[in-house]
């Protein structure tokens, strides 16, 4: 009966939270969910059949293109003034989203999370932040440029984003799937790199962080081998030639500040690396427990020329 009581408390909490206009930040304890989800099973997911059919208006209400002649029952979704360009895959409780919102004010940032409870928490958190900062003088501080939705990105990433739409992708503290048998369920695999390369624009970057050294090595291995001759699909050795991703040099722990001061591309890397090291919920937890953090960043190169063009 304990579980039922818990559920009851949860529902009560969320109802009152909604009634109060979501002004207070939600409490995590009412949104706990098991830390793992099976990416292969058919969840009750909602996703657009194609990116063109995605209705972003509930997520970014401040960025909808005003329709000069609104037609009721228009099936076409309302267009955004600019496309989403930053994706936090597996955003968890949304610490990174909230940290990025004022730091990347010109980008639309989307968090994708597979667990329903956690997604709801992030949604409530964002709406609370928006309510609290509605009066902010600058448009930068109003948290209108972040949103979160529930999705299984391993399956449905191309349903949300078109080719070369994203300029930044974050994979922060992904489920390590320790057993070799479960490696296919990892968010980085030789075959999934193809989808990440598809949605990232040339020059766009993937930021990865984990506290599991073996997983860090695995992710680096997959990204580095991807696209190399003999390294196709990633599992078959390192390969030779030029891959699709190149590793970006990073500031050491504590050096981010000097990078930020230098500004430019280096400053941006420093800023984002500091964000994923210190602002993610999981990053804070690892610091608390005295764990290590392994960061690596990869920049996407342009697609290779077709064999007939060489």
């Amino acid at each position: 009966m304990k579980a039922a009581g818990k559920r009851q408390k949860r529902e009560d909490y969320r109802r009152t939270h909604k009634e109060q206009g979501n002004a207070a930040l939600p409490q995590k304890k009412f949104y706990r969910q098991r830390a793992h989800a099976n990416p292969f099973s058919d969840h009750q997911l909602t996703y657009p059949a194609s990116p063109a059919l995605m209705d972003w208006s509930p997520y970014y209400p401040a960025f909808i293109t005003p329709d000069p002649q609104p037609t009721p029952n228009d099936p076409a979704p309302k267009a955004l003034t600019k496309p989403v360009t930053v994706a936090d895959i597996g955003c968890g409780f949304g610490g990174l989203l909230v940290a990025l919102a004022p730091r990347l004010p010109d980008e639309l940032i989307l968090g994708l999370e597979i667990r329903t409870q956690v997604t709801e928490y992030v949604e409530d958190r964002i709406s609370a932040l928006r309510a609290q900062h509605a009066a902010a003088s600058s448009s930068d501080g109003r948290y209108q440029n972040i949103a979160c939705l529930r999705a299984n990105t391993m399956k449905f990433l191309p349903n949300f984003f078109t080719r070369a739409q994203l300029s930044l992708m974050f994979l922060c503290f992904p489920d390590p799937h320790f057993k070799a048998r479960k490696h296919k369920a990892r968010i980085v695999s030789g075959t999934l790199c193809a989808e990440y390369a598809y949605v990232l624009r040339p020059g766009g970057c993937v930021y990865t962080i984990t506290d599991v050294e073996e997983l860090a090595e695995w992710m680096r291995g997959r990204f580095e081998a991807f696209g190399k001759v003999g390294g196709e699909g990633g599992e078959g050795g390192e390969g030779s030639g030029v891959g699709v991703f190149e590793e970006v040099p990073l500031p050491g722990e504590g050096e981010e500040g000097t990078w930020v001061d230098e500004g430019g591309e280096k400053g941006r890397v420093g800023l984002l690396v500091r964000c994923i090291r210190e602002e993610t919920e999981e990053g804070k937890k690892v610091t608390r427990n005295g764990g290590k953090k392994f960061v690596s960043v990869f920049r996407r190169r342009a697609d290779p020329a077709w064999p007939d063009e060489v």
Partner: peptide, 18 residues
């Protein structure tokens, strides 16, 4: 996708089935 030897490059998707 592109054919061998560039099968890792995704050229696009045909999305519309439900």
């Amino acid at each position: 996708s592109r054919g061998i030897p560039q099968a890792n490059v995704i050229e696009g998707y045909c999305l519309g089935h439900t």
